[in-house]
Structure formats: C-alpha cells, structure tokens
Simulated assay, not measured.
Amino acid sequence: MAVPTNLKYTAEHEWLLMDGDTATVGITAYAADALGDVVYLDLPAVGATITAGEACGEIESTKSVSDLFAPANGEVTEINQDAVNDPSVLNLDPFERGWLFRMKLAGDVDVLEPAAYESLIAGK
C-alpha cells in the first residue's frame, strides 16, 4: 500500500496535508481498507474546536462504527460535503477526493513522517 510522501500521518491512521497553519485531513488507505466499505460519515461541524487525540466524528462501515480522532488542536473550517454524500469515496480515493475536513491549526502538531508511518503499518 503506497504511502504518499507529501503528507504527514498520525498513529490513528489519519493523514494531514499541511499548508502553513491550515491542514486538510483524511484517513489513510490502510484505515479505509481495515474499515471495509464506508457507508456513513459524521464529521465535525464547521466552526467546531477540536482537540488532538479526542473523537471528533464517526466513520461507519459495513463492518463497524469507528471514531474519527482529531489529528491536532484547531478549528474546523470546511468539510468535504461530497464525501458525506458519497462515503464510498474514502475507499476509492482516500488521499484525494476522500479528504474529510480542513482545519486551522492551533499550536504544535504531533505527526509522523511518511517513513515512520510506513514502519507503523508494516508492524501490524
């Protein structure tokens, strides 16, 4: 499974595309594969303040319901309504069309570099 090198990652299998103090957030292909067919998304509301490591939404698949964890502290500035309308995009294209939300970052972000994330998923 390819791990894009332009992204940062969390141990909870989220990816972040950093652009200054803004980040686009999604789940990795590894997470999407482990979830199975995604059928429903509950994303944080625009304007919501989220805290790193805390649940900020849910992803429901044909296998289970999983919490979506905030990858960093900050405020949600946009959600991907296309993904809410068609959650299967997370399985089809998790690193592009399947992004979940954008956020304005507050403070430091604790993320993994691509090589560290690859090592994490190789150990599973």
Rank of each mutant, 00 (worst) to 15 (best):
D82K: 13
L35P: 07
P4D: 10
I27Y: 01
A34I: 07
T28L: 03
F95D: 02
A52I: 05
A2K: 12
G98S: 14
V65E: 06
W99V: 11
E54Y: 03
D33L: 01
V25D: 13
K8L: 15
E60K: 12
G107E: 10
D42I: 02
W99M: 13
T22F: 05
N73P: 03
A52W: 07
D86V: 07
L105K: 01
F69Q: 11
N91P: 13
Y9I: 09
D108H: 06
D93H: 03
I50N: 11
A45F: 00
G36Y: 04
V46S: 06
D86G: 11
G123H: 10
E78Y: 07
M18G: 01
L120V: 01
A34M: 14
V65S: 07
A32N: 04
A106N: 14
L35G: 08
L105S: 05
A122V: 02
P94S: 00
A106Y: 00
L7W: 07
D67A: 13
W99L: 11
M18E: 12
E14M: 08
F69G: 05
L105Q: 05
S119M: 13
N80V: 05
P94V: 02
T49H: 06
A29Y: 02
M1Q: 06
V84Y: 09
D33M: 09
S64C: 07
V111I: 02
V76S: 06
S88H: 06
N91Y: 12
F101R: 02
A32C: 04
T24V: 14
V84L: 10
Y40V: 08
G98N: 12
I50E: 08
L105Y: 03
R97F: 07
L100R: 05
E75L: 09
S119G: 10
T77Y: 08
M1E: 08
V25M: 10
G53A: 11
D19K: 15
T5Y: 09
A34G: 11
K124F: 15
I50D: 10
I79L: 03
P4S: 11
L17E: 15
A34W: 09
E78Q: 12
L92H: 03
M103F: 03
D37Q: 01
T49E: 14
W99R: 09
A115Y: 00
T24F: 05
G47E: 11
T22W: 00
W99Y: 08
L43G: 00
V3E: 11
L41A: 12
D19V: 01
E12K: 14
D67P: 01
L17F: 05
G20T: 07
N6Y: 10
G107L: 09
I59C: 14
S88L: 07
V3W: 06
E113N: 02
D108F: 00
A48N: 07
M103P: 09
D21T: 14
A115H: 06
D21V: 06
V84R: 04
K124N: 15
E113P: 04
K63D: 08
G20R: 12
